[in-house]
Design a protein around this nucleic acid. Structure first.
Length: 563
DNA sequence: TTAGGGTTAG
């Protein structure tokens, strides 16, 4: 990894130091960190420096530093400015191409691959393959990435190549495949573990995540660096195990901005917003540098807990207090914060006042708030606005359909439905996942495919009886403003998380926590039912839905019914 | 001198 060039805004003190000590002339490699720092500060300065101290290593450091910065295409220009090239230039060049491909076009990377091919390097040297594979992964072309791997002779499939493949699947959202690939690997290092932990975090696979943590503890050759510490605590947080996340946080020695940010974001999403803000204050008090993402996490903490004043203050003061301009992400959190707290007009005014182009996510946050607070009029306007920007937006279509259905305007409902069909829009089916002894069980709404299905439905009947004794009536009728909840055609009592919790009750012991990961937002009825089950069956139930965690215990939820 | 830990919203 190159030196901390990205944090060095002025390379001149380093330049002066190297000149004074004579190090710049003593070793060719001494110019490399300086070149990296200089290339981020001023390209002409970097060029003059590189011409005075030319070496592959220095050029590569500069190319890599630029590729990680805000203008990665300049890395290509720098590469072109070199008088001669060699094979060692390919990895940083391809890294730059990967960054460019992720945000705009994969043409540059494809041209590099073509040049490799022309030079007879279609089966390029070992250290180029991993970079090539990563480029295709960043470009979203997983088949091409896979081909780089498959065409490599087995003896050349080294650990970096395997790791690149893991990260290719990871960055394309194929988390289960990441864990499967690992079973075929003979070796693992820090980078492997980073990919595996991230996959577990996305899947909510706590059992596997814990196993990996134990594996790390057993394998003394992989020290728990700040990278692994951060990945570990992210995994625990995203699996709803806040206690373990705290232990890892305290045990991680060299925390950086990402470590703190993961902790703050994790606390927020698990319903511990006050702790998140306390940690944020501690971070500031300790003088730890924070960035735009940290503030996004802090604003999300405010949004999850309805801390309107605090959130508004942070948003308005961020340019003064932290020299950071609010981005669309920050405004998104603020709209969510205001809208969810019922301040719909204020949220709308904010969207209109945002100096950036309002995107679908901003309007989407407001749409969710309109649904929540049953503001039909504004909701309709917002849905139309969203559909103008993105005609494929399923949530907006479903919202309109529900509003028209509630008003009995069946001709309009029909119109919406045929428009949806025309645009090829379908809602994903609701599903819930439970992990039991390392095996993942997935349930869909109204699912009868599980071998224990009869017992599961019998259990649901039993739960239903308890609920009716408590006077509960399932919210199957009335106006529905859901945009993400599961189809109403499927009986509400057969929602996937209810099947999952029944399965959990049947197959775990008293005292075991039942952990469910759901792909959509939990609906109101399921939320209520979970609370009752946690009390009647004396169980802790942790549900991760699309937005956040719900820790159900003794009849109440950590979100305090605010979600 | 190949691979790499973090955020919102939907």
């Amino acid at each position: 990894m190159p030196p901390a060039a990205s944090t060095c805004s002025n390379p001149k003190p380093l330049h002066a130091r190297l000149l004074r000590s004579g190090a710049l002339f003593a070793a060719r490699s001494a110019a490399a960190p300086l070149a990296a720092a200089a290339s981020l500060a001023s390209l002409p300065y970097a060029l003059s420096l590189l011409r005075a101290h030319p070496s592959t290593f220095s050029y590569n450091s500069a190319i890599r530093a630029i590729s990680r910065g805000p203008r990665p295409h300049l890395a290509i220009s720098l590469y072109r400015s070199m008088l001669s090239h060699n094979n060692y230039n390919y990895p940083p060049l391809l890294a730059a191409c990967a960054r460019i491909a992720a945000s705009s076009s994969s043409a540059a990377g494809a041209a590099v691959h073509a040049s490799l091919f022309r030079r007879g390097l279609e089966s390029p040297e070992r250290f180029i393959r991993a970079s090539l594979l990563s480029f295709y992964a960043a470009a979203g072309d997983l088949p091409a990435a896979r081909q780089v791997f498959d065409l490599s002779p087995a003896k050349h499939r080294d650990l970096p190549l395997w790791n690149s493949l893991l990260h290719a699947y990871l960055s394309n959202g194929l988390y289960v495949q990441v864990l499967r690939l690992f079973r075929r690997m003979l070796d693992a290092d820090e980078v492997t573990l980073l990919a595996l932990l991230s996959a577990c975090a996305h899947l909510g696979a706590l059992h596997t995540g814990r196993w990996l943590h134990a594996y790390l503890a057993r394998t003394c050759c992989i020290p728990i660096t700040k990278y692994l510490g951060t990945a570990l605590l992210n995994m625990y947080m995203r699996c709803g195990d806040v206690q373990s996340a705290w232990s890892v946080f305290h045990a991680t020695r060299h925390k950086d901005v990402r470590t703190w940010t993961v902790m703050i974001a994790g606390l927020a999403v698990n319903g511990f917003s006050t702790d998140a803000l306390t940690l944020f204050r501690e971070m500031k008090d300790r003088g730890i540098h924070l960035d735009s993402i940290t503030l996004t996490a802090v604003l999300s903490a405010c949004a999850h807990a309805g801390m309107v004043d605090e959130g508004r203050r942070i948003l308005h003061r961020m340019s003064v207090d932290h020299h950071l301009q609010p981005t669309i992400e920050h405004y998104g959190c603020a709209v969510h914060l205001l809208g969810r707290a019922g301040r719909l007009e204020e949220a709308l005014a904010l969207i209109r006042a945002v100096p950036l182009k309002a995107d679908v996510a901003l309007w989407g946050a407001l749409l969710v708030a309109c649904r929540c607070h049953k503001n039909v009029e504004m909701g309709q306007m917002v849905a139309m606005e969203i559909l103008r920007l993105d005609p494929q937006h399923a949530g907006a279509w479903v919202f309109l359909s529900n509003v028209y259905a509630a008003a009995g305007k069946w001709d309009l409902v029909q119109e919406v439905r045929s428009s949806m069909k025309e645009h090829g829009i379908h809602k994903p089916p609701g599903s819930s996942v439970v992990e039991l002894d390392g095996v993942v069980y997935e349930f869909f709404s109204g699912d009868h495919s599980h071998p224990q299905s009869d017992q599961i439905y019998a259990m649901l009947d039993e739960i239903g009886k308890t609920l009716s004794l408590k006077g509960h009536k399932p919210a199957t009728k009335g106006v529905t403003f859901d945009i993400d909840e599961e189809d109403k055609e499927v009986c509400i009592s057969e929602h996937s998380e209810k099947l999952a919790v029944a399965f959990g009750l049947l197959n775990t012991r008293r005292g075991d926590v039942i952990r469910i990961v759901k792909n959509l937002r939990i609906c109101e009825d399921c939320h209520y039912v979970m609370k009752v089950i946690s009390e009647v069956y004396d169980r802790v139930i942790v549900v991760r839905d699309r937005n956040r965690f719900h820790h159900f215990k003794n009849g109440s939820c950590s979100c305090l019914d605010y979600w």
